[in-house]
């Protein structure tokens, strides 16, 4: 992993100047109050597809997961002036079909086969504020909440693994809170960097000794913007959490490939 990161950094440093090198946006980051320009589309191998629309709106959906967990997100820009941008992001999802698929015997059975999966309507909302330190440097903050309603009979157990538990806690408890700080910007030439710190506040299940649990995620990453069409991302996610199933710490490798087309900047 370290060798792969080193290769990405070195190639990014020596990559010849191109139109991409003149780009002022920070590595196609989805996680600032900035929006894709109208007409621009970007698709990640693992990340969501994003489409910039007229009227300060960006749509987001994951093409691979859309049919198993139908969802749609929209980011609205509410303010853009001087160095500040403010946007809100709203994602409505229905994870029930995916959870039903994961309820199976044998390998891949994330949930027990006899699980009764309720109809879950999940609404995730964020407010994002981004401050432009320079043309290609961004500081962002966000506050968010996940609201969920589970309808019908349910024997759905929690998925007791970091990342999944944090993002699925609202399915069981009705809500969860999130906050985050991040930096994104050009490191050098076509190499962009990012560093995010995210906090998840998770209401404790009934009968728990605590009122709240929490998870903290620290995510450094580097993105090599190969051209206006292609980008490679590599990084890591450090996760520390206090969950109903105990204190846990993990380090997870990250990787993504993004393809984009249409108007840029």
């Amino acid at each position: 992993m370290i060798r792969a990161l080193t290769i990405v950094v070195v190639i990014g440093l020596i990559w010849p100047s191109s139109a991409a090198a003149e780009s002022t946006r920070s590595a196609w980051s989805a996680d600032t109050a900035d929006l894709l320009p109208a007409g621009r589309t970007e698709v990640g191998l693992f990340g969501p597809a994003r489409v910039g629309l007229q009227g300060d709106v960006e749509l987001q959906a994951h093409p691979l997961w859309f049919f198993l967990a139908p969802h749609m997100g929209a980011k609205w820009r509410h303010h853009s002036g001087g160095s500040w941008s403010v946007a809100s992001r709203h994602t409505l999802s229905y994870p029930t079909p995916l959870l039903s698929v994961l309820s199976r015997e044998g390998t891949g059975g994330v949930l027990p086969v006899e699980t009764e999966v309720p109809h879950i309507i999940n609404l995730t909302q964020d407010i994002l504020a981004t401050y432009a330190l320079r043309e290609d440097q961004r500081l962002s903050a966000r506050l968010g909440a996940r609201l969920a309603a589970a309808l019908g009979e349910s024997t759905l157990p929690t998925i007791d693994v970091p990342l999944a538990y944090s993002r699925g806690a609202a399915w069981h408890e009705g809500f969860a809170l999130e906050a985050g700080l991040s930096w994104s910007g050009r490191v050098v030439a076509t190499l962009f960097g990012g560093l995010a710190l995210d906090l998840f506040l998770l209401p404790a299940p009934e009968g728990s000794a605590d009122d709240w649990h929490h998870a903290v995620e620290l995510t450094p990453q580097l993105t090599w913007r190969i051209s206006d069409s292609w980008a490679l991302m590599a990084g890591a996610k450090f996760v520390q959490g206090s969950y109903p199933f105990g204190e846990q710490s993990h380090v997870l490798p990250l990787f993504d490939v993004t393809y984009g087309w249409g108007a840029d900047d």
Binding site: S29, A30, D31, G44, F46, G47, P48, Q60, H62, L64, W65, A69, H71, G73, T91, S93, T124, R142, L163, A164, R167, G168, E178, G180, S182, S184, G194, L195, A196, D198, E217, T219, Q221, K237, L252, P253, L254, F255, D256
Partner: peptide, 13 residues
Amino acid sequence: MYHESISRWFPIV
């Protein structure tokens, strides 16, 4: 750098 869905990370991992 925060993310919409857990689905982004599991395949990567």
